[in-house]
Nucleic acid binder design. Sequence first.
DNA 1: CAGTATCCTGATTGATACTG
DNA 2: CAGTATCAATCAGGATACTG
Lengths: 125, 125
Amino acid sequence: MAVSLQVLRAQQPGALTTSCPGRVVLDHVTSKWGVLVLGALADGTLRWGELRREVDGISEKMLASTLRTFEADGLVERRAYPEVPPRVEYLLTPLGEDLAEAIAPLLTWVLAHAEEIVGRRAAQR
Amino acid sequence: MAVSLQVLRAQQPGALTTSCPGRVVLDHVTSKWGVLVLGALADGTLRWGELRREVDGISEKMLASTLRTFEADGLVERRAYPEVPPRVEYLLTPLGEDLAEAIAPLLTWVLAHAEEIVGRRAAQR
DNA sequence: CAGTATCCTGATTGATACTG
DNA sequence: CAGTATCAATCAGGATACTG
């Protein structure tokens, strides 16, 4: 049987309703840049500038905001080195690594089917 | 080895960059209500009203918008019955069911760790 | 290099009304 | 029942400039 909201709620009533903590976490992960930042860090530590380049198109503001959110969630760790010029590294915590594994199927699925989907949309008109 | 943007790009250069079709699809799926609508339909066919109740908090406008997007993507099918009162059912296509399986790990992970994450955030101040 | 500050647009929401 | 239309309000996100 498929994993659906109904199935999840059979075990955990009220799961992913407005008042459920899961909604907060899901909102962070599915925020505009959430999965891309997690996907970039899934390979290991990256510096601010590297991260900005990996997550193509992200603004500095949104990168900072996304990272602060994940830091507060305990998913990402920030390491600043008191050097000149400054160096700051970001990496997934064990919890973050666990989450990264959970979103991996989504990333691979999307890449495998993107052409098919976008192609159909184009053909519709 | 973890599935990361870097690993995906080793096989598919430019994967999930701004110009990649995958970004379009990923944006649809991780849109504000995307995974919740997919999660609700993962269990089977639902009517408009049922869907609205399952996806707690969604407005009619956003439900309509999300469904139209997924219809155009070929992920959701709409079946209207010419009856009085009208009846309309929504269900996942085979492609949509496949996607639902890919997001299942995310949903279960989020529910399993939400308390832990939200609790830590609260404790930080 | 690694950010913050500021301003501004556009997406999302809410409320309400209306229709086949 | 299953929507669409419209308007106002809010807020996430974008663009640009600046700093330790």
